[in-house]
C-alpha cells in the first residue's frame, strides 16, 4: 500500500519538477526541457541558458527547501509534542534571520537577496553557520521554557512572542539603514527560491543533506520522545543527548534554508501532518522520507503557482506557501479537540 503511495508521489514529483522548469515568464515546451536536461548541446541556446542557470537551480532549491523545512517541522512537533510547532511558529526562523542580519550589519551591509548573492564561498558558510546558531539559540530557549510550562498553547504563544521580539530587533536595525536596503530586506522576507545558484546551491545541499542524515539516524530517538521525556528515559534514552542531536539537526535545516531563501512559512508546520495523514503512521523511520517527498512536491507546486505562466510577474513564494499551508493549520486546529493534550 505504502509502495503505491510512494510511486504516485514520485511521479507527481517528476511531473512537477519538469513543469516547474518549463513554466515561467518564458514558456519552454516540455519536450525542449527534457531535451535540454539530457542533451544540453542541442536546441535553443537561450532556453538552455535559462534552464541551466535559472530554472534548474530554482527547482533544486525548491526540493531542498521542501525536504529541509518539512523535516525540521516534524522534529519540532515531536520534540515539543505539539501539533502546531514549526520553525516559523516557534521563532526559529526569526532566530536564523537575526543571525543573518548580524553578519550583514557587521559587514556594513544589510540582509538582502542581492547581498547574499554577492557572498563568496567562505561568506556563504559563515552566514549558514551564524543563521543556524541563531536558530539553535532560539530552540534552546524555547526548550528550557517549555520544560517548566506544561501547557502547549502557552509554549506556542511564548514562541510567537520570541519571534516577534527577534523581528523587532531586526526592524530597529533596518530603521537605521537606507530606504533602498529596507526594500531589499522586505523582498528577502517574502522568501525566494531564485537567489541560490552555483556554489551556494552546492553548500546549501551539503548542509541540508547532513541535517537530513542526522535526522534520519535519530528517528528511533524521535519515536521514543512521542511518549514524553519520562517514558523515553524509562526506555533507555538519554534524553539530554537526544535533544541536543534533534535541536542541532533542526537548527542546521531551518537555519541553512532561511539564510539563503528567507523565512518561508507554513511548509514546516503543514507537511508533517499531511505525511502522518497519508501514511497513517507515527514512526519517524517512515515519516522523515515521507515528509521529504510531500514537502518537495508541495514546494515545487507552490513555485509553479508563484510564477504565473506567461506573465512577467513572479509572486513571492511565501504568499503561496501561506495560501496552501494556512488551511492545513486550520484543519489541524479544528480537528484536534485535545490540542492541549497533544
Amino acid at each position: 500500500m505504502n509502495k503505491i503511495k510512494v510511486l504516485i508521489l514520485l511521479s507527481i514529483l517528476l511531473v512537477a519538477f519538469l513543469l516547474d522548469i518549463a513554466l515561467g515568464s518564458v514558456h519552454i515546451p516540455l519536450k525542449e526541457v527534457i531535451k535540454a536536461l539530457f542533451n544540453p548541446d542541442s536546441g535553443n541556446d537561450t532556453w538552455v541558458y535559462i534552464i541551466e542557470k535559472i530554472r534548474v537551480p530554482k527547482a533544486l532549491t525548491a526540493i531542498i527547501v521542501g525536504c529541509g523545512l518539512s523535516v525540521s517541522g516534524l522534529q519540532m512537533q515531536t520534540l515539543f509534542r505539539n501539533p502546531l510547532a514549526g520553525p516559523e511558529v516557534l521563532g526559529v526562523t526569526a532566530g536564523a534571520s537575526l543571525g543573518v542580519a548580524l553578519v550583514m550589519l557587521s559587514a556594513g551591509s544589510i540582509t538582502s537577496l542581492y547581498t547574499i548573492k554577492e557572498l563568496g564561498i567562505s561568506g556563504s558558510w559563515l552566514i549558514i553557520l551564524v543563521s543556524s546558531l541563531g536558530a539553535g539559540l532560539i530552540m534552546l530557549l524555547i526548550v528550557s521554557i517549555s520544560s517548566s510550562l506544561k501547557d502547549n498553547v502557552i509554549v506556542l504563544i511564548v514562541g510567537v512572542m520570541i519571534g516577534s521580539i527577534t523581528f523587532s530587533v531586526i526592524s530597529i536595525w533596518q530603521y537605521f539603514s537606507t530606504p533602498e536596503l529596507i526594500k531589499d530586506y522586505l523582498l528577502w522576507t517574502f522568501g525566494s527560491l531564485g537567489g541560490v545558484t552555483g556554489s551556494q546551491l552546492l553548500i546549501l545541499s551539503i548542509v541540508v543533506s547532513i541535517g537530513l542524515l542526522i535526522s534520519f539516524l535519530s528517528s528511533k530517538l524521535l519515536d521514543a520522545l512521542l511518549l514524553g521525556d519520562n517514558y523515553a528515559r524509562s526506555m533507555g534514552l538519554t534524553v539530554k543527548r537526544a535533544r541536543i542531536l534533534i535541536i542541532g539537526s533542526t537548527s542546521i535545516l531551518a537555519g541553512g534554508i532561511t539564510a539563503f531563501c528567507g523565512p518561508i512559512g507554513f511548509i514546516g508546520i503543514a507537511v508533517p501532518h499531511l505525511a502522518r495523514a497519508l501514511f497513517n503512521t507515527s514512526s519517524h523511520r517512515v515519516l522523515i522520507p515521507a515528509c521529504c517527498l510531500i514537502g518537495t512536491v508541495l514546494m515545487l507546486i507552490c513555485d509553479i503557482v508563484s510564477q504565473i505562466s506567461g506573465s512577467q510577474t513572479v509572486l513571492p513564494i511565501n504568499v503561496i506557501t501561506s495560501l496552501v499551508g494556512a488551511p492545513v493549520v486550520i484543519w489541524i486546529i479544528v480537528g484536534s479537540t485535545k490540542l492541549k493534550g497533544f
Binding site: Q77, T78, R81, L226, L227, G228, N230, Y231, R276, T281, S282, K338, G341, F342
Partner: peptide, 8 residues
C-alpha cells in the same frame, strides 16, 4: 503522563 499524542 499523558501519552495520547503524535498520531500513535
Amino acid at each position: 503522563d499523558n501519552v495520547r499524542s503524535g498520531n500513535l
